[in-house]
Amino acid sequence: MNSDFRIICSRISQYFTRRKDTEYYLQVVNDLYDQTYNFFINIRPRNQRMHSIPLHTVKNYRLEYLEQLINKITEQYHFSIVYDGFVGLRWPNRQELIQKRRHKDE
C-alpha cells in the first residue's frame, strides 16, 4: 500500500497548484473488466473546461485495501472524492455505501 500511496500523493502534489477560483477533486473508478481501481485528479478553473488527469492504477483489487488507501489519502489531502462503478458496494469496515446512485455518464 505504501508504494501506491506514495505514487498517488506525489502526483497529486504535482498537479495541485492551489490556483484561485479553481476546483480540485479526486475521482476513483472501479474498472470491472481489468479488475483495477483508477485514480484521477479533476481540475476545473472557473468558467473553463474540466481537466481530468490520470494519477495511478491500483492493481490490488480488494475493497479492504482501497478503503485503507483512501483513508490515508484523505488524512493528507482533504479533497472531495467522486466514485464511479461502485453502485451497491459497501466499505468493508464502515459498512457505508460507496456510491449511492449511478451518475448520468455511467
Results as ranks from 00 to 15, higher is better:
residue 43 I to V: 02
residue 35 Q to L: 14
residue 89 L to R: 03
residue 42 N to T: 09
residue 33 Y to P: 11
residue 42 N to A: 07
residue 92 P to W: 09
residue 42 N to I: 13
residue 78 H to S: 01
residue 5 F to D: 02
residue 97 L to F: 14
residue 62 R to E: 10
residue 77 Y to N: 02
residue 106 E to A: 01
residue 98 I to K: 03
residue 39 F to T: 03
residue 7 I to G: 00
residue 70 I to V: 09
residue 36 T to F: 13
residue 55 L to P: 02
residue 41 I to L: 03
residue 76 Q to E: 09
residue 3 S to H: 08
residue 13 S to K: 13
residue 19 R to E: 00
residue 11 R to P: 03
residue 101 R to A: 07
residue 65 Y to H: 02
residue 93 N to I: 07
residue 62 R to H: 06
residue 40 F to Q: 04
residue 34 D to M: 12
residue 55 L to R: 01
residue 52 S to A: 10
residue 98 I to Y: 03
residue 64 E to Q: 08
residue 11 R to G: 06
residue 100 K to S: 15
residue 13 S to P: 00
residue 20 K to W: 15
residue 65 Y to D: 10
residue 85 G to F: 06
residue 32 L to D: 14
residue 74 T to H: 10
residue 51 H to F: 12
residue 23 E to R: 13
residue 81 I to G: 05
residue 70 I to C: 10
residue 17 T to P: 00
residue 99 Q to H: 07
residue 72 K to W: 08
residue 36 T to W: 11
residue 34 D to H: 10
residue 76 Q to D: 05
residue 97 L to W: 14
residue 16 F to C: 04
residue 61 Y to T: 00
residue 36 T to Y: 11
residue 92 P to I: 06
residue 31 D to Y: 14
residue 94 R to G: 15
residue 54 P to R: 10
residue 17 T to H: 07
residue 72 K to C: 11
residue 91 W to K: 09
residue 90 R to P: 12
residue 34 D to I: 13
residue 20 K to R: 15
residue 72 K to A: 12
residue 1 M to G: 03
